[in-house]
């Protein structure tokens, strides 16, 4: 699972008001190179919640993202490279996600988070 997906996912449990962002527990991180596409990054930037992305990338062991970011930084190639790496190339291979409100654990196996809910959580 990439951080792009992590930045989109929220906990879906009944009664949870703000299920975003899911806390990450890391067991194994892998890096897979992806083609660099500045257009996609510029398009995505407005939709990304920056702080959760920074926090998540730190948990995954990548601390190169600036604490704050705004649209003017998108002209910097260096910034885009870092953004690209954090968003698309870091994969959470093994670990777990936790709902911020209920602390429900969603296991991540082979890079696939298991978001299936029990009957009483729907």
């Amino acid at each position: 699972m990439r951080l792009l997906t992590h930045n989109m996912l929220s906990s879906n449990i009944k009664g949870v008001i703000n299920g975003f962002p899911l806390r990450i527990e890391v067991e194994k991180v892998v890096e897979k190179p992806v083609d660099f596409n500045p257009d996609f990054l510029k398009n995505m930037f407005s939709k990304i919640e920056w702080k959760p992305l920074v926090d998540a990338s730190r948990t995954m062991g990548y601390a190169e993202l600036p604490e704050e970011a705004d649209a003017s930084m998108l002209d910097s190639h260096d910034f885009l490279q870092r953004f690209h790496h954090a968003l698309l190339e870091l994969h959470l291979e093994e670990g777990a996600l936790f709902c911020p409100e209920t602390n429900r654990r969603f296991p991540v196996n082979k890079g696939i988070p298991n978001m299936l809910l029990h009957e009483d959580e729907v």
Binding site: M1, N7, L9, S10, N12, I112, N114, L116, L117
Partner: peptide, 19 residues
């Protein structure tokens, strides 16, 4: 190339609004 999620669409998608 895409990311995969194990989930049930009948339980709702669990994706942040408007993204």
């Amino acid at each position: 190339d895409g990311d995969l999620l194990l989930g049930d669409m009948g339980q709702g998608l669990g994706i942040r609004p408007g993204v």
